[in-house]
Design a protein around this nucleic acid. Sequence first.
DNA 1: GGGCTTATCTTTCCAACGTAAATATTTCCG
DNA 2: CGGAAATATTTACGTTGGAAAGATAAGCCC
Lengths: 203, 203
Amino acid sequence: MTSPETRDTYHHGNLKNALVAAGLEILETEGLPALTLRAIAARVGVSHTAPKNHFGSLRGLLTAIAAEGFRRHAAFMREGLGAAPDRPARLRAAMEGYVRFATTHPHLFGMMFSPIHCDFEDPALVAAAGESFAVLAGISEGLDWDKGTGPDALLKTEMMLWSMVHGYAVLTMSGQMAGATGQDDLPGIAEIMPGFGYRPAPA
Amino acid sequence: MTSPETRDTYHHGNLKNALVAAGLEILETEGLPALTLRAIAARVGVSHTAPKNHFGSLRGLLTAIAAEGFRRHAAFMREGLGAAPDRPARLRAAMEGYVRFATTHPHLFGMMFSPIHCDFEDPALVAAAGESFAVLAGISEGLDWDKGTGPDALLKTEMMLWSMVHGYAVLTMSGQMAGATGQDDLPGIAEIMPGFGYRPAPA
DNA sequence: GGGCTTATCTTTCCAACGTAAATATTTCCG
DNA sequence: CGGAAATATTTACGTTGGAAAGATAAGCCC
């Protein structure tokens, strides 16, 4: 996917996308500390100052990479939704997709939620993150729990689900959950989520 | 608390503690990106290579700072416990202490859970983090929910509470929760936690 | 199709960073 | 008192992101 180390034309032609793709590759193979401006540019075959024209700074490039990460993240969450027979199963599938993305792409996932690396004010990133959040919002409606009917019911439900699954993903992935509990084999996200039911579907 | 910029003796005398204290100060005033080896050393008044004798590397020093962070984190969680009249109130107090620490010391909190900066294998860090986890463990016992009695009941309860409160803290603090929901004024941790009750105290 | 404008990329340079190695100073302890 | 160990400094090095200036290509208008 990424262009080779050399090229015949002075202009790359598709540098913006190539840089994002190269960054994703580096994240997968070498991790976050190796994700330097110079390394990304070298992989595409351009000078280390070339990205500045498209992204302004390293932070800008990382933000674009994170945005692509959120799109894939949303795709992971949506993956099991089709096969789910009912709403509780959909809830479970989305949560497990969330965690599966984190464990499959740990470095990318870590960067996507790091204020040091990403600019959460960036409109493109906000939009991409909203794509993931929308999946959560979709399964939040009608969830039956003690705050599922009052004021801000939907907002509270979304926040509760997001907080739980995100905390689980972060803490297990970093090894802190294993370290603090002393357990190697930890329960999955479905095993630590209260068994929420759903109120009858609206109409 | 920290030594002044100059000193009369060749040996500092208490460099190890002074470096940790200086690091904490920098985190409060200038944030995580400013927490460099050279900046910490300069604040204490030693050369930027002096910390190596005590901590090995920058990562080692940051790990020690994080450990002190976890001790203070545990103190925040314990703070409201005494005044709580019953067990549900204790649960709420601990959760709110967790979040209050994160909002009061955002940069320190962020570093404490960053595998890039800290070495989660370090015994001192594991011990300090365990101190925080112990507070959670203390309020997990007897919590009444659908997984509160089966196998690994206590472990699952601890993991559920920790995941929820940690996810909430991270996502609200980074601004992502506000960004994705479009809400400025978000519900507190107590408002998005299921209203757990407790089974009768054991004897 | 000639010429101006703009976008894109390179080259060069710089300050700041973490770390290594060699050296200086102090303390500890026999 | 004296050598060993601990502690801190000096110097140097390779790497990083970014700024500045110049080179090259593309777009576009007449």
